[in-house]
Amino acid sequence: MTIEPVDSFATRAIHAGQDPEQVTGAVVVPIYQTSTFAQDVAGETRAGYDYSRAGNPTRTALETALASLEGGKFGYAFASGMAAADTALRAMMKPGDHLIMANDAYGGTFRLIDKILKPWGISYDAVPLADLDAVQAALRPETKLIWVETPTNPMLGIADIAALAEMAHASGAKLVVDNTFATPYLQTPLGLGADVVLHSTTKYLGGHSDVIGGALITNDPELGDAFGFYLKSMGGVAGPFDSWLTLRGIKTLAVRMDRHCDNAEEIVEMLLQHPKVGTVYYPGLEQHPGHQVAAGQMLRFGGMVSFTVVGGLEEAVKVVSRTRLFTLAESLGGVESLIEHPGLMTHASVVGSDLEVPSDLIRLSVGIEAIEDLLADLKDALD
């Protein structure tokens, strides 16, 4: 039996690429924990699989689901989000090329571009992507990519995907959108003109803080072929068990994201009223400079919240160490709530650069616990 394509996101999250297994009828995709596959005749595979680096049925199921959720034709699952980013950059650029990225990009992306790809011969400019004039001014004849996060990590800046896609294409460049924070439930960049969508599937797609993974999705056949070739040749593939865990997480993505958003919205309202809180960063706020753009391209505004505290670095470090339910840890997007100090943790690699984040900034990954418990925990930590 093959599940027919349907429009409902929640249904596709449960069924796309995940038909019952043909031999036994297993409802859940099996974990094909094997490195190699038997061939009856040399060079002739039974189902297109010969070696798990080149392809594995569990990974194929995940890649099919990812493509469906993002509205893409080609999906590829990687061992980590950074492996996916590295593959995209190497497959789409060559020494001498130039890219534009956000001036508040994720620290790991900045490190990859600045410390690894720059010595390889790639140049870049980091600009405020919400300022289309600044982006236009940064474009060069050798610009091949505009690399976008929206919302950004950790400042929750918003970029206009459709406008940037039009600008990129007019100059002969392509647009890559890191959709990790929004997820395909809240935002589908390919439908807005992006050429490639990237995910750290470690985060909301996996959803349970128990797997590391990444993904690339595109509708471009040439890019699809290139990503597949680089994935096979460089070997940064998602293993079968990690693929299975990510598939399991995807099944509940829609219901989890609604709860993440519900909880985040209430936490934002509390933070706005608290005397020890300075600035609250959340695209759902009308005063957020990217609110109107976010409202036009997102279903809701997500489960990530950042804010500054009165008292500077010293007080921020104290606050993140006082919570009980918000675990002090890096990463995000799990069912449990996390709290961190970006300047000392996830974004330490950008200290001293133009991308350095405020020292009094705290980032929350709001989980799906009971909201009254989360509010009490944060109030106690702030008080």
Rank of each mutant, 00 (worst) to 15 (best):
D258Y: 06
A47Q: 09
N103K: 05
D50E: 13
D354Q: 10
T87F: 05
A162S: 07
Q187C: 14
E372Q: 14
K118H: 14
T308L: 03
Q287C: 14
D373T: 04
H260G: 07
Y282E: 10
V293D: 03
K115N: 15
G302M: 01
I339D: 06
G172E: 04
L344N: 15
M92D: 08
R12K: 12
L231V: 10
L313N: 14
E330K: 12
E222K: 03
D160C: 05
Y281G: 05
A54H: 10
K73V: 02
T58W: 00
S123Y: 04
F301D: 08
L62I: 05
N263E: 00
G236Y: 09
I371L: 07
L198K: 07
A65Y: 03
V177S: 06
V268E: 11
A264H: 08
E70K: 03
V255F: 12
A215D: 02
A65W: 05
A381R: 00
L338I: 10
Y106H: 09
R322M: 11
Y281A: 09
I31L: 15
G17K: 00
I368L: 01
R59M: 03
G121R: 00
K232H: 11
G284A: 03
D262F: 06
E315H: 09
S8V: 05
Y76C: 05
T323N: 03
M1G: 13
L117R: 11
Y282H: 08
A348S: 12
A162E: 06
L375Y: 10
V27L: 14
E340V: 11
S233M: 14
G191P: 00
A226W: 02
M93V: 15
Y49T: 05
S349P: 06
D86K: 09
L338N: 04
E166Y: 03
Y185M: 07
G302K: 00
L299W: 02
R324T: 15
E286M: 13
R322C: 12
S68R: 09
N153M: 10
L205F: 03
V280C: 08
V197D: 02
K318A: 04
A264P: 09
Y281K: 07
E266P: 10
P57Y: 01
G121M: 00
T24S: 09
L355D: 02
F227S: 02
P221A: 07
S123T: 15
R59P: 00
R46Y: 10
K144D: 06
G352D: 08
T60Q: 08
M92S: 14
A254H: 04
D195H: 02
K203C: 15
A16V: 02
H347S: 06
T34F: 12
N263D: 00
E142F: 14
A215N: 03
P95K: 11
V320Y: 01
A194C: 02
V280W: 11
T36I: 15
I146V: 13
G278D: 07
A215M: 02
